[in-house]
Simulated scan of single mutants.
Amino acid sequence: MSTQTPARTSPQQPSYGYADLGRLMGLMTGDEKHGPAATSTLDALWVLYDRVLRVTPGTAEDRARDRFLLSKGHGPMAYYAVLAAKGFFGEEVLAGFGSYDSPLGHHPDRVLVPGAEIGSGSLGHGLPLAVGTALGLRAQGLTDPAVWVLIGDAELDEGSNHEAIAFAGPAGLDRLHALVVDNSSATHGWPGGIASRFEAAGWSAATVDGRDHEALHAAYTAPHPGRPHVVVARVEPKN
């Protein structure tokens, strides 16, 4: 049984902007190995939470909310910083990151982290879970909520993702959105680029600079009637 206490939403959350994220991330130490994994997702996460996702601390249990699933669960510091900036918990929680009694583990735990839809750790699970979430919402008649999942390019080496990609296109899951952060860390690579794999399965796709906020926003909000949508956000290669 876990002895950790879930983080709580701060009732008097100060206002944060993108410029505050570096300081918030700096409060979390002890996982420098996964620093590149965190920094690679920072801009993509911020634009998504700041301008696209329809979910707040007050609507985190609302059935009509958008869902965001973090599949790239290793190196979650950017994710935690964005959640804190958006008021899901207070910034004072960040300093305990990775400690024994902190709710903020080296992989997010949905039971402990407000706003986290899934617990993530084993790579390759997030996209299949997102497909299942989109199917479940459709079955309940909830056709408005969007489902987003963030994947690392190396996760696409996992066979479970190939099956999810192949299923989602023909199923017409148009409320499903995948965000692939590409820092050139995949072992096998993708002839023709990552987007081509999704397009071959009937997805709508866009490839953009993962540091360009306007390009990210335009790609996130591009229409894709009748098809799931993937945004490939290219960032600097992992060293």
Rank of each mutant, 00 (worst) to 15 (best):
P6Y: 14
S10F: 14
S15T: 14
G17D: 15
D20I: 04
D20V: 03
L21Y: 07
G22N: 15
G22E: 04
R23H: 12
M25N: 06
M25V: 10
G26C: 07
M28Q: 11
E32H: 14
E32L: 11
K33S: 09
K33H: 11
H34E: 10
P36I: 03
A38T: 09
T39G: 10
T39Q: 08
T39H: 14
L42T: 06
L42C: 07
V47L: 08
L48D: 01
Y49N: 01
R51L: 04
V52F: 08
V52L: 07
V55C: 15
T56N: 08
T59W: 11
R63N: 10
R65P: 07
R67W: 15
R67N: 09
L69Q: 04
L70R: 02
L70D: 00
K72S: 14
G73C: 08
G73L: 06
H74E: 11
H74I: 00
G75Y: 11
G75K: 07
P76D: 00
P76E: 03
A78H: 01
A78S: 06
Y80A: 05
A81K: 04
A84I: 01
K86Y: 04
G87L: 06
G87D: 07
F89T: 06
E91K: 13
E92R: 14
V93E: 06
V93C: 01
G96C: 04
G96F: 01
F97V: 06
G98D: 04
G98A: 03
S99P: 08
D101G: 08
P103G: 09
P108M: 12
D109N: 02
L112Y: 09
P114N: 00
G119R: 00
S120C: 05
G121W: 06
S122M: 07
G126C: 01
G126R: 05
L127S: 01
P128M: 07
A130S: 11
V131I: 05
T133D: 09
T133E: 09
L135C: 04
A139S: 13
L142V: 00
L142A: 11
D144C: 15
P145D: 06
W148L: 03
V149Q: 00
I151W: 01
A154M: 05
A154V: 05
E155Y: 01
E155G: 05
E155A: 10
L156C: 01
S160D: 02
H162T: 14
H162I: 08
H162L: 07
I165G: 02
A168E: 05
G169S: 08
P170T: 00
A171I: 00
L173I: 04
V181H: 11
N183Y: 09
N183M: 09
S185G: 12
H188W: 14
I194Y: 09
I194Q: 06
A195C: 10
E199L: 04
A200C: 10
A201M: 12
W203F: 13
S204K: 09
A206G: 01
T207R: 15
T207W: 08
G210D: 00
R211W: 14
R211G: 15
R211C: 15
D212K: 11
H213K: 10
A218I: 11
A218M: 15
H224E: 02
V230G: 04
V230I: 03
V231I: 15
V231Y: 10
R234G: 03
V235Q: 07
E236I: 02
K238F: 15
